[in-house]
C-alpha cells in the first residue's frame, strides 16, 4: 500500500497507493442513469462518510464498487490498491479485500449463521464465538441466516460477517438504521474494530501515529449521522444528482450544513 521512492533530489519520499480510486464512474440500473461521473479517492486508514438524499444513488455506488450485476458500469473505472477491478466479479473483489454490509440481505434457509461465518472467514473458525459475543449474537449462531431477524439483528449479523471476513475496505450502508439505542454502541464498537479505530487507542500513541498505524479504510452511508457519535470519520461527501460534491470536508461540519440548509442548497453553496 505504502512504498517509498527516491525523488529528483535524491530524497526518500512516501508514495501512497490509494485504497480506492474511482474515476469518472457512470452507473446505470435498468435503463436509468444513477451515477454520472463520480470521482473518489480513499487513502489507507481513512474513513469516508457519504450523505445524500433518498434515491441519490448512495447504495448504487456501494453496489458498483462491490461489483453487483444490477449496477452496470457504463463508464469510468474503479481501482483497488492500484489495480483496476472494474472487470472483476464480486467474489474476486471480496478475495482482494473488499467487504460490504448489506442493508437488506436475503434470507438463506438451511444455512446457519455459523456456516456463513465459516465461509466469510475462509474456514478460520477461531474467534467466531468471541466476535459473536462482542456483538451479543451468540444465540443466533445456530439459526438460519437472516431468518426472522429484526432490523437491528441484521445489522449485527452483517458486521459479524465482516469481522470474520476482515476486509481492508469496508463498505457500510446505513449501519445504524433500525438499531435500538442499547445496541448502537455495540455497532459503533464493531465498526471501530473493523476499521482498526480502537486498536491503537489503548497504547500511548500520538494522534498522528494512530492514524498512520491504521491500514483499513471505510466508506459509510449515513442519513442521520448518528453513527458519527461512535465512529470517528475523516472525510465527508454529498452524493447529489449523480455526482459527489462538498468532498473533503469534515463530516460533522458537513452534516451541520445539511441540517441547516438542506441538500440542494448545501451542495450549491459549497461546490
Amino acid at each position: 500500500m505504502i512504498n517509498t521512492y527516491i525523488d529528483f533530489y535524491g530524497e526518500f519520499q512516501l508514495r501512497v497507493v490509494m485504497m480506492l480510486k474511482i474515476e469518472d464512474l457512470h452507473v446505470t440500473v435498468g435503463d436509468k442513469q444513477i451515477l454520472q461521473g463520480v470521482n473518489l479517492h480513499i487513502k489507507p486508514g481513512e474513513t469516508h462518510v457519504l450523505f445524500g438524499p433518498n434515491g441519490s444513488g448512495k447504495s448504487s455506488l456501494l453496489g458498483a464498487i462491490m461489483g453487483f450485476k444490477r449496477y452496470r458500469v457504463a463508464g469510468g473505472k474503479i481501482f483497488f490498491r492500484g489495480e483496476d477491478i472494474t472487470p472483476l466479479s464480486v467474489h474476486e473483489r471480496a478475495q482482494r479485500g473488499l467487504g460490504i454490509a448489506f442493508q437488506r440481505p436475503p434470507v438463506l434457509r438451511g444455512i446457519s449463521m455459523y456456516d456463513l461465518l465459516r465461509i466469510s472467514g475462509q474456514e478460520k473458525v477461531d474467534g467466531i464465538e468471541e466476535m459473536a459475543k462482542s456483538l451479543n449474537f451468540i444465540s443466533f449462531l445456530p439459526r438460519d441466516v437472516n431468518f426472522g431477524f429484526s432490523g437491528g439483528e441484521i445489522k449485527r449479523s452483517e458486521l459479524l460477517q465482516l469481522l470474520a471476513q476482515d476486509p481492508d475496505l469496508v463498505l457500510l450502508d446505513e449501519p445504524e438504521s433500525g438499531v435500538d439505542l442499547e445496541n448502537i454502541a455495540l455497532i459503533g464498537h464493531a465498526i471501530n474494530q473493523l476499521l482498526q479505530k480502537d486498536s491503537f487507542q489503548k497504547r500511548e500513541c500520538s494522534r498522528r501515529e494512530i492514524k498512520e498505524g491504521r491500514r483499513k479504510s471505510g466508506l459509510i452511508i449515513t442519513h442521520t449521522g448518528f453513527i458519527l457519535d461512535y465512529v470517528p470519520a475523516d472525510v465527508g461527501h454529498v452524493l447529489y444528482e449523480g455526482q459527489l460534491s462538498c468532498s473533503g470536508l469534515n463530516p460533522r461540519e458537513l452534516l451541520g450544513c445539511i441540517h441547516e440548509l438542506g441538500y440542494g442548497e448545501c451542495t450549491r453553496c459549497l461546490v
Binding site: 464480486v90 471480496a94 448489506f102 438451511g110 444455512i111
Partner: peptide, 28 residues
C-alpha cells in the same frame, strides 16, 4: 435468487460455490 448468490460471493465464494451452498441449504 441472484441476490442470494451475490450475497455469498460478497463473502468470497465463487458463483459455483455459492450456488452449491444454497442448494445444500435448500435440501437441508
Amino acid at each position: 435468487a441472484e441476490e442470494e448468490i451475490e450475497y455469498l460471493m460478497a463473502r468470497g465464494l465463487t458463483e459455483e460455490e455459492a450456488t452449491a451452498t444454497i442448494v445444500r441449504g435448500f435440501l437441508n
